[in-house]
Design a protein around this nucleic acid. Structure first.
Length: 884
RNA sequence: GCCAGAGUGGUGAAAUUGGUAGACACGACGGACUCAAAAUCCGUUGCUAGCGAUAGCGUGCCGGUUCGAGUCCGGCCUCUGGUACCA
């Protein structure tokens, strides 16, 4: 046995052993409990970064843990290989995206192998392989036939200079990232999947996911956004047309004072034809990108169309505005506005001097009414004054009738006033009454609405899966002869998809043309988890093996996928279910969302004001006597650098730590241990080189302890009783209990803490003959507890110390409850909730004995001397609180 | 803007979920070993006062509930993720 810890050598040997024994190859074994553990597959961007290492280490720890519990564990790996970065790299290097992508896959695969992950590599897949994407093309043609896929126009970001569609990420401050031109919204024909048909089911399914983080469930619930409301038809004055809106607050219908439509709404476009101001406004609204964050933060603006609507109940006249915050793609592209009871409507009304008509008062406002004298004009009841101005309404007591500032109470439900036949009803009663009234008059009725919109899957890009559609003179039809293969040897030039310039791809003769758009890359990542079960199935998308493995028992990935990817995958699973391909509704039983990896940034200011960023590896720091960093300089020139804050590891801030360098230097086990130890999996992980040193030190400490006792594994005799080392053995089993508990709740940092504590105990007490038996048992426990986290060293020591042949087949350690028994316990004594002392009492002491011991404590007596004791609270086994 | 999180020593964090705040580490300081250094081992380490026993203060800020609050409730501040074409 090597005297010194030599990670490079032992890790290579351990990996060789696993490879030779095909340790992680799995097949379906119906008699064995299965466990499918999946980490989100990487985009092959070039090299592995720390985020990947963290994600895959967490997944591997869970996989190996489940395997040691005796389950049939599947852990696959593959490549999310289509996407925008390949096109950007292709543009830069003038090489085909396919070449770049496959080279990256080769390199990153080599890096993954160095980390000792227990993947079944026989199941590897890459989404850019036609063997993979042919099946999503197949599914799509079925969806077209089932009317679950359809075409409609939708807005995209258009760069008028580069004449190309931009991703939201490529729009920076409203301008194209390469051209710098102001981006425009442009409506183009696109394919959509009817995810809204599944909205209710996707919402209900969230209740059946107790293994998901509550925050993710909450985000998905809000994203789907079910709301019960009413549709209302407003006639357009002097025409036969109508404007339909949806509202969740029909109780405020009598307070409507204006309507707002999207700038691209047909009514607005028509008004713009005869009015230069309106046309200019519509043009201004066209500028800027389509992302919600951009649209919602832009200042609200509108313009009167000089078209009026007719209130469906009062017959009053309501002006129609075009507004930049109403979007054509959402609902009907029109909203009714109630400025007295909606914040956004309120500020818009103030900006354009529109009427504000309060119609709801607080529930406790029995009998009181809104003073008519303070309102001189309100749509639906009186003609608007000439300039549509309304004087300020005053607030009385807690009346929601203020004009100057908005109060959130204004939007609360209450009792209706000034609402004709509905006055006096509560908001809830009015909801029903208004809905029935509209329904009876043929002017609307109840409706359930979802915030969720249908999924646009068309992308005007090259490096993606071709949409299998053919345009013929007779119309649109699904392609036959799948797969429709993506041409590979292509040079990208940044002016739109090269497929559009390749008649050999799209021109099928007889006026028949292939679709040249490709699928959104979320399409591929929405079903890869299922394909891993049967990656070689060549007669169908999935086969019977999928029904053995699915659902995924544990999914691990970044929190940034909380909504889109996870929702699309839940949707796809249902699409595949409805094709009879899978049995289950939900694809992922448990979900762990891991936090990002961040690091300190360092910079120097250049003379032109720009900043130069330096890698943390090239910096040395100086600390004060408390250990606080007071200055830092670049190693190479010794001149100072300055901290720029802690940020996500990135190329732009040059704060990435290369996993490869660390593996070369410390070995994979140390990197894995550090990552698992330094933060709980769901939290942000702040990188620290010193922390890695600490992890490395622990590895050596473990190795040194073990190598000093060759063959000690043979001393383990049925949890060998150790008389003279009772306290030490109790500590070991207490830490073991803690570690087992933390494995179950997936808090791996404290699993490592517990292992460190056990090693500390063994260092102190492992010397004598009895100590050797303690050591034999304790080391056996630590090796198995660390097995999933640091697999190479534990594999090696398990064999070298004679514990057994293969630690993967060892039984998982169990707590010996008899080792935990104590004779006496220490309890904390508080007076008035403040700790004043400690008492030692027998384990079975009753409350009277505990109280007596408490009152006998000298320091306690100091604090109860001249005050009255009201009562004494005893928390068994923990503390005593004397209430004074 | 909207939705969802997070904030604890010099640092990463722990606190079995309302019961001893700071486990386990990192760093720093002191010691042993060494000609010396590295490595290793041992000790001290929330802040303030005190030789000490001990006391006061302390979990982003303000307020509340409770015998008792890092944990529960109300209101803020700052940071992070998502926001439908980054993946």
């Amino acid at each position: 046995m090597e005297e010194k810890y030599n990670p490079q050598q032992l890790e290579a040997a351990a990996r060789q052993y696993w490879e030779k024994n095909r340790s992680f190859k799995v097949i379906e074994e119906p008699d064995k409990e299965k466990f499918y553990c999946l980490s989100m597959f990487p985009y092959p961007s070039g090299e592995l970064h720390m985020g990947h290492v963290r994600n895959y280490t967490i997944g591997d720890v869970i996989s190996r843990y489940q395997r040691m519990l005796g389950k049939n564990v599947l852990q696959p790996m593959g490549w999310d290989a289509f996407g925008l970065p390949a096109e950007n790299a292709a543009l830069k290097n003038a090489r085909p995206p396919a070449e770049w992508t496959y080279a990256n896959i080769e390199y990153m695969k080599g890096q993954l192998k160095l980390l000792g992950f227990s993947y079944d590599w026989d199941r590897e897949l890459a989404t850019c392989d036609a063997d993979y994407y042919r099946w999503e093309q197949w599914l799509f043609t079925h969806l077209v036939k089932k009317d679950l896929a359809y075409r409609k126009k939708a807005a995209v970001n258009w760069d008028p200079v580069d004449r190309t569609v931009l991703a939201n990420e490529q729009v920076i401050d409203g301008r194209g990232w390469r051209s710098g031109a102001v981006v425009e919204k442009r409506e183009i024909e696109q394919w959509f999947l009817k995810i809204t048909d599944y909205a209710q089911e996707l919402l209900d399914g969230l209740d059946k996911l107790p293994g998901w983080p509550e925050q993710v469930v909450a985000m998905q619930r809000n994203w789907i956004g079910r709301s019960e409301g009413v549709t209302v038809d407003f006639n357009i004055e002097e025409t036969d047309e109508k404007l339909t809106v949806f509202t969740t607050r029909p109780d405020t219908l009598m307070g409507v004072t204006y309507m707002a439509v999207a700038a691209e709404h047909p009514l607005a476009l028509r008004a713009g034809e005869g009015n230069a101001d309106i046309a200019a406004f519509i043009e201004r609204c066209r500028q800027g990108g389509v992302s919600e964050a951009e649209i919602e933060t832009v200042e609200k603006a509108g313009i009167a169309l000089d078209i009026n609507a007719v209130h469906p109940i009062t017959g009053g006249i309501v002006p129609i505005y075009a507004a930049n915050f109403v979007l054509m793609g959402y609902g009907t592209g029109a909203v009714m506005a109630v400025p007295a009871h909606d914040e956004r409507d309120f500020y818009f009304a103030r900006k354009y001097n529109l009427s504000i008509k309060p119609v709801i008062v607080p529930s406790h406002w029995e009998g009181k009414d809104i003073s008519e004298s303070e309102i001189n004009s309100a749509a639906g009841e009186a003609e608007l004054s000439e300039d549509r101005r309304v004087p300020a309404l005053s607030i009385k007591d807690d009346l929601p009738l203020i004009w100057d500032e908005w109060d959130t109470r204004f939007s609360e439900k209450g009792i209706l006033r000034r609402s004709a036949r509905f006055s006096g009803l509560t908001s809830d009663q009015a909801f029903d009454a208004v809905a029935e009234h509209l329904n009876a008059g043929g002017k609307g009725g109840r409706q359930i609405n979802f915030r969720l919109r249908d999924w646009s899957v068309s992308r005007q890009r090259y490096w993606g899966c071709p949409i299998p559609i053919v345009k013929t003179p007779e119309g649109i039809e699904p392609a036959t002869g799948l797969p429709v293969k993506l041409p590979q040897d292509i040079i990208v030039d940044g002016t739109g998809s090269p497929l559009k310039r390749m008649p050999e791809f799209y021109d099928l003769g007889d006026g028949r043309e292939r679709e040249t758009d490709t699928f959104d890359t979320f399409f591929e990542s929405s079903w890869y988890y299922a394909r891993y079960c049967c990656p070689d199935a060549d007669q169908s998308m999935l086969d019977e093996r999928a029904k053995y493995w699915l659902p995924v028992d544990q999914y691990v990935g970044g929190i940034e996928h909380a909504i889109l990817h996870l929702l699309y995958a839940r949707f796809f699973n249902r699409l595949m279910r409805d094709e009879g391909l899978v049995d289950n509704d939900e694809p992922f039983t448990r979900l762990l969302t891991q936090g990002m990896v961040v690091a300190e940034t360092w910079y120097r200011q250049n003379e032109d004001g720009s900043k130069e960023w330096f890698n943390p590896a090239d910096i040395e720091t100086e600390r004060d006597n408390k250990g606080k960093v007071i200055s830092a300089r670049l190693k190479s020139d010794g001149r100072p650098v300055f901290p720029g804050g802690i940020e996500k590891m990135s190329k732009s801030k040059n704060n990435g730590v290369n996993p490869q360098t660390l593996i070369d230097r410390y070995g994979a086990d140390t990197v894995r241990l550090y990552i698992m130890f330094t933060s709980p999996p769901e939290q942000l992980l702040e990188w620290s080189d010193e922390g890695v040193e600490g992890a490395s030190r622990f590895m050596k400490r473990l190795w040194n302890l073990a190598s000093a006792h060759p063959g000690i594994g043979g001393l383990v005799v049925s949890n060998g009783i150790v008389d003279n080392q009772k306290n030490a053995r109790r500590e070991v089993h207490e830490h073991l209990k803690k570690a087992l508990f933390d494995y179950e709740r997936q808090q791996f940092n404290t699993v490592v803490s517990a292992c460190m504590s056990i090693v500390n105990v063994l260092y102190r007490f492992g010397g004598s003959d009895d100590g050797k038996r303690l050591l034999a048992e304790g080391l056996g426990i630590v090796l198995r507890l660390l097995g999933p986290i640091a697999p190479h060293i534990t594999h090696t020591l398990w064999r070298e110390l004679d514990y057994g042949d293969d630690i993967l087949n060892a039984p998982w350690p169990e707590v010996d409850e008899s080792a935990l028994v104590r004779d006496s316990i220490e309890m904390v004594v508080q007076v008035g909730g403040r700790v004043r002392g400690r008492i030692t009492v027998a384990v079975d002491a009753d409350n009277a004995a505990i109280e007596a011991a408490t009152l006998a404590n000298k320091n306690v007596q100091r604090f109860i001397d001249d005050v009255e004791i009201r009562k004494i609270i005893v928390v068994p086994g923990k503390l005593v609180n004397v209430v004074v």
